[in-house]
């Protein structure tokens, strides 16, 4: 509840996508450039550690005093005190009691508005597609399909569900993988270990960056951040076996005791 500014990034040791801390990054560039940038940033997934730039503490308190006192003056020029205003309103309310008002309109939350901006500026590569199962007016719940065009998972199709809160971007979107996948950073329940979805989420990030982050999980799976312990161990100790396990799982079959439905 307290206003103590943004808290600091914690010293967790694991892969992280790093972004320039200050200014919001415009994402109207082409995908290849984003990809290169992200790739270097994603050195991450190899256990790269760096400190996030410290956000500046708020310093703009005093300069507003004049503006605010001016606006107070404007209000006080009016002759009615608040209570007189209440009196007038109460009388109006009694009169209007039986008159039927306009249909209540659903107000858009600030989170929805920001999401609207994110979505309308999406710039996705061919390997990623977005769907809105509830139609064009529900942007808060959507699905993303990723078809990796490189790496172990080439040829597979993976579905993710996104659920966005009304206080977005103060809170990260909730993302689940709906396709059962043999992957070191995604468990069999669909939980995804991606730093920017949890501990490294910042309001300057957006839906585009999250989708790129997911995409990179497939091109560069990372055994240092295991969520599926077995898959991570195989990737670390025997990449050849890992590759064949991934192919078997994607084609529909068993890896160990676990059955994976076909997703190619």
């Amino acid at each position: 509840m307290m206003g103590e500014g943004l808290s600091e990034g914690k010293g967790e040791r694991h892969g992280r996508v790093m972004f320039g801390g200050g200014k919001r990054k415009e994402n109207n560039g082409d995908f290849e450039r984003e990809k290169r940038e992200l790739k270097s940033l994603l050195l991450l997934l190899l256990g790269f550690i760096a400190e996030l730039p410290k956000p500046k503490p708020p310093t703009k308190l005093c300069s507003s005093i004049i503006i605010i006192s001016l606006s107070f003056l404007c209000v006080f020029f009016s002759t009615r005190t608040m209570i007189k205003l209440f009196k007038v309103k109460e009388k109006q309310r009694e009169l209007a009691e039986n008159a039927n008002g306009g249909a209540p309109i659903k107000k858009q939350s600030a989170g929805e508005l920001r999401l609207h901006k994110d979505i309308s500026e999406l710039n996705l590569p061919k390997s990623c597609a977005i769907q809105f199962p509830n139609g064009k007016d529900d942007l808060m719940n959507f699905e993303v399909t990723i078809r990796p065009d490189d790496g172990y998972y080439l040829g597979g199709t993976f579905l993710f569900s996104f659920n966005v809160s009304p206080i977005y971007p103060h809170e990260a979107p909730k993302v689940k993988c709906k396709t059962k996948v043999y992957h070191p950073n995604i468990d069999l329940e669909g939980n995804v270990c991606l730093n920017i979805l949890r501990e490294d989420w910042k309001p300057v990030l957006n839906i585009n960056t999250v989708i790129y982050g997911l995409y990179h999980l497939f091109t560069e799976p990372n055994y240092e951040d295991p969520l599926n312990h077995d898959a991570a161990a195989v990737l670390r100790d025997n990449p050849k076996l890992f590759e064949s396990n991934v192919r078997r799982a994607m084609a529909g079959g068993y890896v160990g005791q676990t059955f994976f439905a076909r997703c190619m």
Partner: peptide
């Protein structure tokens, strides 16, 4: 709204591993 510090969220892989 920026006054409110973000919630502490632990990395899932730390929880799992």
């Amino acid at each position: 709204i920026w006054l409110f510090p973000p919630q502490v969220k632990f990395p899932l892989c730390t929880l799992a591993e």
